[in-house]
Design a protein around this nucleic acid. Structure first.
Lengths: 337, 337
DNA sequence: GTGAAAGCGCTAACAG
DNA sequence: CTGTTAGCGCTTTCAC
């Protein structure tokens, strides 16, 4: 059987409480005692039972990461691995662990309850850009577990989140195309059921309005945030002869690139192309993709840090953070950097 | 505050014990009572506290999935999402939940202890093909937590696992190339630090030996299980003029395909190509990839089922399962299906 | 078929 | 600074 605090206490000649204090870095412990107890804990490789800790203290030092999407689509985009990496490393450096919950749609509701009341996690990070997500709703209504979203909540102002400035980033990309003299600027927007999809499209509209260019509905297509989504949308766009395309994600842009080249057009000569995300592979497409870089890994790290802060220093005001993006100019837009 | 058993008991006019019995499907409960209590549990959407259950009963109905690799590389290959999907759905249909632990190398040791003694999970599935994995070692030595590997353990015969017949599958692929009259059959083998890498390479050797063809060391290259790994290995292979290549994974094959075509050769006319895995996208490469399909999702589901069985019906004999593969003939090998 | 009572391993007052 | 004590919410004998 695994050892318990009691065992360690007996072995080091102190009481259970003292051992507990040592483990939890309570300042009220004699330095000599502390060292002696640590010594034993280490040689024995003692691990306190998390369930017992959870029950007694109401905290586990474990954060939940919920990604409410089908497993397969989660990993079609390099976005999530980068996000997870950021969260994971922030957790590690704060002494927290991360549990990942992948929520297949059918199980969302059941899971929601389980997460809220399982007592196994101190807080939740929800990485979802879907509007009206039931998991988020449950968290909002439950009001029991600290949670933070990656990607802003569309309308509830009491929700904490970290997001990137999708709207501004998109607008800058489109302004860049306008500055290059493009006249028929199309966009492949993401699903309008996702906040990021909406925000980036809004950025496109902003830039067009700002330049007093009117938006031709034939130059607006929609696609999933995937290569295939971009490919299909671009095929529909091609007959309408855009001279530039703003794609709502790099994966969309990659798909669009394939459709453009397959149709016999050249990038950027015939059609300029700009993506969004700045995933590593965007630098290695042919031609290299001009894109709006968002700090994905950092978003994850900040989400974790904010959540930990919310857990350790509760306060009624929501934490908010909006990270800015950066336009990376490469070959696909036709500008010479 | 979340409700407790006590609350449900009060609301339904029975004792805490009875509510517990109802939740745990204890047969010794009056049918009327059972219905009444379920009714309340459902309308209230009561969720028992998992930590308390864990502490009291020593089981949580939660399975841990440990993937001891860097986060980013885990998702470079569609293998893991499919595996996770299988595990996840098997858990769900047995009333278990799944927690995913991504083990960054540096944290493996710390994590290992945490997993073993956290008391939060009833068993562990380890998806790792790395030899001598410290997490696996800890699990083997600890002998406390039921666990199963996806991919056989290289030498410990007491370990339970589910694996696919990598060696046989690889041999069949190579035999197929031999049957097509190929004379200079190269292989891009996976890392020999991974069991699957070793087994598939052994299958290549088996088939060559069987056909009494000698293995030219210049026709054996090694690469990571990734597109880039395949690309680089193929570039080294090209000067040695293979007329066929057996790639140890589909991602490797995709990379090899790029290298071959970039070098100006045609597939399958100049070089025939066969992959391994049967990931969905292998059907959509150009040309479509002949490959050895392994039942990834099913491996995951079976691993979960076996583990649950081990938990619920303990026994000293290890559970073993080897799934067979299937050669999918498409265009890239030059045979006409 | 059901309730009472003990206890899982830990933390957190409360004394000293 | 340290030990004692009382639970956290649940399962599980053991009586009835």
């Amino acid at each position: 059987m695994p050892l318990t605090l009691e065992d360690i206490a007996r072995m080091s000649g102190v009481s259970r409480s003292t051992v507990s204090r040592v483990i939890n870095n309570d300042p009220n412990v004699n330095e000599t005692t502390r060292l002696k107890v640590w010594e034993i804990i280490h040689t024995i490789n003692f691990q306190p039972n998390l369930a017992a800790r959870s029950l007694a203290a109401g905290r586990t030092q474990v954060l939940g990461l919920v990604i409410p999407m089908a497993v397969t689509s989660i990993f079609a985009d390099p976005y999530f691995p980068l996000l997870i990496q950021g969260i994971s490393s922030a957790c590690n450096s704060s002494g927290y662990s991360m549990m990942l919950w992948l929520a297949e749609p059918d199980y969302e509701r059941r899971m929601a309850g389980q997460i809220l009341y399982s007592g196994l996690i101190d807080g939740v990070i929800v990485a979802s850009n879907v509007m009206d997500d039931p998991v988020v709703e449950a968290l909002v209504n439950g009001k029991k577990l600290p949670f933070i979203m990656v990607g802003r909540h569309p309308n509830d102002s009491s929700v904490s989140y970290v997001d990137v400035d999708n709207r501004m980033g998109a607008a800058q990309a489109v302004e860049h195309l306008i500055r290059l003299g493009k006249k028929r600027i199309a966009t492949i927007r993401g699903p309008q059921t996702m906040v990021a999809g909406v925000d980036r499209f809004q950025g496109y509209l902003d830039a067009m309005a700002q330049a007093k260019m009117k938006v031709d509905p034939h130059l607006v297509e929609e696609g999933e945030f995937s290569q295939q989504g971009g490919f299909q949308a671009m095929q529909k766009l091609l007959p309408n002869q855009p001279d530039a395309v703003f794609a709502a994600s790099d994966m969309i842009a990659v798909g669009a690139m394939m459709a453009i080249q397959e149709g016999g057009w050249k990038i950027p000569e015939d059609i300029a192309l700009v993506g969004f995300d700045g995933i590593p592979s965007s630098a290695h497409t042919d031609p290299p993709l001009t894109t709006v870089r968002q700090p994905i890994t950092r978003s994850g790290a900040i989400a974790a840090q904010l959540l930990i802060d919310m857990i350790e220093n509760p306060s009624p005001t929501p934490r908010r953070m909006i990270l800015s993006t950066e336009l990376i100019i490469r070959k696909s837009c036709g500008a010479n950097p």
